[in-house]
Design a binder for these strands. Structure first.
Lengths: 223, 223
DNA sequence: GGTTTCTCTTGAACACGTTCAAAATGGAGG
DNA sequence: CCTCCATTTTGAACGTGTTCAAGAGAAACC
């Protein structure tokens, strides 16, 4: 019942991912992928618009694995700080095998034109899933926070996560140890700031942050 | 007295920059650059390791223009917030003409392997100049801040500037208006936070940030 | 002046991502 | 079985960034 074309398609993507993992993105040629998969180069291009498109597979795989593992890992935990830390450390765990060529992946993702950009139209579903995870991190925790902040905090945390990813891409330490240190030490900071957001002196600050996020996330902007 | 080789080198880079500006980075081929400059392709590669290297010229040009203009623009102003805002808005002014293919420039810069990465060895001088500008922003201002923060704040502000640049690259609004809004509204926030850093409740927070920056900027990390 | 050595220059050749006209395949309808 | 049409597959060909063996030129040394 599985269409023949679906089979070819997944054969190509599977082969590509395997070769990327074995030899890295740059050293894997389209000819090699096609050859190994037993199809012609043109055929690969019938299913995928470009070589870049093929790594969307990784992107999805990391995201899917992360969501599942993180949700399970924070089950039962109530402490906001712990929950957030677990989510981020889980990401580092899931992403670790891909760090070698993660560079290439995220270089392409940095291109605003690329569909791989975390801000692009195409990655809206993935982005919303990640933001949703952050929402859950807050929702089921005992965090007390400025109610005004509640709606926008998931977006802010997602942005924070993008920052961690950026650091990770540049992280050359063994096992990305430095990224782990970054998470372990910034999470308590964030938790404290979130807690302090209810303080009278910080109220205007957090309120302005919320309002800024709202204004800037309006997509359209008449010139 | 100017060496012949220097002449060829700058002829190539000048031609490249002109063609990039006229037609964009992608649509400008190495053959076109060489042809227009009246040299052979191989000759261009004698002076520049890759096509990417050629855009280091833009990088330098923006940085140089920014430093000069910004220093002049903040002359006499004492208010920290105003000084910081001016520095950032000046950057947006200087960079505006390059926004069209700034994308390509910063996509390459996002690659940690690339010498164009703001964290790379090769851009250390440029980075230190930018951090130095931030140091001056603080030094000649009336900002009162936690003395522990004083040493690390320039680095933090530089990081903040990188964030603004990242936003700018993705900014599709006319004249990068949204980037300007971002600057105008985040600068007061930062100024307020910097001012609040002396508060007793925030003291541990700012101290931890300082210590974290110190630890993570240690380049070497024994596995 | 001849010889050697170093710097600079050349352009053909290579490997790659990508395109495309053409061929093969596989049903659906007669 | 044949005909038509859409889907799928092919591989040669294109344009690109990049390399490299070979040469041209200049400078240094005897």
């Amino acid at each position: 019942m599985v269409a023949k074309s679906e089979e070819t398609r997944s054969l190509i993507v599977a082969t590509a991912l395997r070769l990327f993992a074995e030899n890295g993105y740059d050293r894997t040629t389209m000819r090699a992928i096609a050859g190994e998969a037993g199809v012609s180069v043109g055929n690969a291009y019938y299913y995928f618009a470009s070589k870049d498109q093929l790594i969307q597979g990784f992107y999805d795989e990391i995201a899917k694995g992360h969501l599942a593992m993180a949700r399970q890992a924070i089950e039962g935990e109530r402490d906001f700080s712990e929950r957030l830390k677990t989510v981020l450390l889980t990401w580092l765990d899931v992403a670790e095998p891909y760090h070698r060529f993660g560079t290439q992946l995220f270089v392409n993702a940095a291109d605003p034109e690329s569909p791989l950009s975390p801000f692009s139209e195409e990655s809206t579903p993935a982005r919303e899933a990640s933001v949703g995870l952050m929402r859950d991190v807050i929702a089921d925790s005992d965090a007390k926070l400025d109610p005004d902040l509640r709606d926008e905090l998931p977006d802010l945390l997602w942005l924070y996560q993008m920052g961690v990813v950026l650091f990770w891409v540049h992280d050359r330490s063994g096992g990305q140890k430095r990224s782990r240190v970054l998470v372990e030490r910034t999470v308590p900071l964030i938790a404290r700031l979130v807690g302090l957001s209810r303080l009278r002196v910080l109220r205007p600050v957090s309120r302005e942050i919320v309002s800024l996020i709202r204004d800037l996330s309006k997509r359209d902007d008449a010139a």
